[in-house]
Simulated scan of single mutants.
Amino acid sequence: MTKDAVLGLDVGGSSVKYRLASVTRSDRMPDALDEGRAPTPAEDPVAGLAELARRVTAGVRLDAVAVAIPGIVDAERGTVVRSANLPALNGLELGPRLSDMIGVPVSVLNDGRAAAVAEARWGAGAGIRDVFTLALGTGIAGAHVVDGVVVDGAHGSAGELGHVVIEPNGAWCTCGQRGCLETVIGAPALRRAWSSAGGEGAPSAMFAAYEACDARAVEIVNRAADALADAILTLLALVDPGVIVIGGGLATSPHRLVTLTAASVAERATFHRVVPIVPARLGRWAGAVGAVAQAQTLAARTEEAVA
C-alpha cells in the first residue's frame, strides 16, 4: 500500500464521476490521486460500484468512501429512499451493503448537498462560514452550509428554494403548488417559454439569442432573473447567509442569470443585508469533490471512534 486515501463517487443516470484523494482534511482542495468517469452500473448497482472502487483504489489503502446520489437519501442509515434517475437504488441500503463488499466505512448523501459542501469548503464560498448554494437545472436545488455542514432542518428537507411561490396564479408545479420558482426558471419552464415565443432549441440557444440581443430571449431571461431575485430576497430575510453561490447548467459562463439576478436583488432590497451573489467554481465535478469531503469526515470520525 502506498498511501491512505478516500474515494468520492458521484452517481448519475448514465455515468459515475469518481475522485480519489488524500485522507487528510485541509483548507486547500486536495489534488486528485485519480479521477474520471465510468458507466453507471445497470445490472447490480452495489456490485458495480464495489468493482469500480476496487479498481480505482488498487495500490492505495482506502479509509472511507462517500457516494453522492440524485434523490432522497436517509444519510443516517445509508439508504436511498427514492431516486427518479436511478430507480434500481430505491429503498436500497447502499451504504451498509457497499461497506460490506469493500471493507471500509461508506457514507451516502444527496448529490446537491455534496456539491454545496464542495463549493462552501473549496469553491466560491471558501473562507465564509455561512454559505447558501443554489443549483439551477431541471429543478432548483438549494442547500445551506454552515461551518462546512449542511443545515438539513428538522426533517431533512431544508433549502428547497425552488418551491417558494413566486407567481401565486402561475403555472402548476410538479410539487402540486402553483407558481413555484421552478415553474419560471427551471430548464423545462425556460424551454417552454422560449418555444412559445417562437424560439428553437434548448435554453442554451435562448441564452445565445440573449447575447445577440434577441428581444424575445431578453424578455424571458429578465423575467427569470427577476423571479430568482424574488426568491433570494425571501432567502435574505429568512436565512441571512454570508454569500450565495449559484451553479448548475443554467448558470454557466457567461453567468447571465447570476449577474442579472444580483443586480435585481441590489436594486430592490430594502432592509435586507445584500450579500455577494457569485457563480459556482467547481462545475460538474462539484458532487464528486463534495463526496471526497464527506469521505474525509467519515474517515476522521472512524479513526476517533477506534482510538
Results as ranks from 00 to 15, higher is better:
Ala5Ser: 14
Ala5Ile: 09
Leu9Glu: 15
Ser14Val: 05
Ser14Phe: 02
Ser15Trp: 10
Ser15Val: 12
Arg19Ala: 08
Arg28Thr: 15
Met29Leu: 15
Glu51His: 05
Glu51Pro: 03
Ala53His: 04
Arg55Met: 08
Arg55Cys: 08
Ala58Thr: 03
Val60Trp: 12
Val65Lys: 08
Ile69Asn: 07
Glu76Cys: 01
Gly78Thr: 13
Gly78Trp: 12
Thr79Asp: 01
Val80Thr: 05
Ala84Lys: 11
Ala88Lys: 13
Glu93Ser: 06
Leu94Ala: 04
Ser99Asn: 08
Gly103Lys: 00
Val104Ala: 03
Pro105Val: 09
Arg113Phe: 02
Ala114Asp: 10
Ala116Thr: 15
Ala120Phe: 03
Gly123Phe: 01
Ala124His: 04
Gly125Asn: 12
Ala126Tyr: 03
Gly127Ser: 08
Leu136Asn: 00
Gly137Ser: 13
Gly137Ile: 11
His144Asp: 11
Val145Glu: 12
Val150Met: 05
Val151Thr: 07
His155Asn: 03
Gly159Ile: 08
Glu160Phe: 09
Val164Tyr: 09
Val165Leu: 12
Glu167Pro: 04
Trp172Ser: 14
Thr174Asp: 05
Cys175Phe: 01
Cys175Met: 05
Gln177Gly: 13
Gln177Ile: 06
Gln177Pro: 11
Arg178Ser: 13
Gly179Ser: 01
Gly179Glu: 04
Leu181Gly: 06
Val184Asn: 12
Ala193Ser: 12
Ser196Tyr: 04
Gly199Asp: 14
Glu200Cys: 01
Glu200His: 03
Ser204Asn: 11
Ala212Trp: 01
Asp214Arg: 00
Arg216Gly: 11
Ala217Glu: 07
Val218Pro: 09
Ile220Phe: 04
Arg223His: 08
Arg223Thr: 06
Ala224Leu: 13
Ala224Gly: 14
Asp226Trp: 03
Ala227His: 07
Asp230Gly: 05
Ala231Asp: 12
Leu238His: 06
Asp240Lys: 04
Asp240Ser: 11
Val243Trp: 02
Val245Cys: 13
Ser253Gly: 06
Pro254Trp: 01
His255Asn: 03
Leu257Phe: 11
Val258Gln: 00
Thr259Ile: 07
Thr261Asn: 10
Ala262His: 01
Ala263Tyr: 06
Ser264Arg: 10
Ala266Gly: 10
Arg273Pro: 08
Arg273Thr: 13
Val278Ser: 05
Pro279Leu: 12
Ala280Val: 05
Gly287Thr: 01
Ala291Leu: 14
Ala291Asp: 14
Ala295Asn: 06
Thr297Val: 14
Ala300Pro: 13
Arg301Gly: 12
Val306Thr: 08
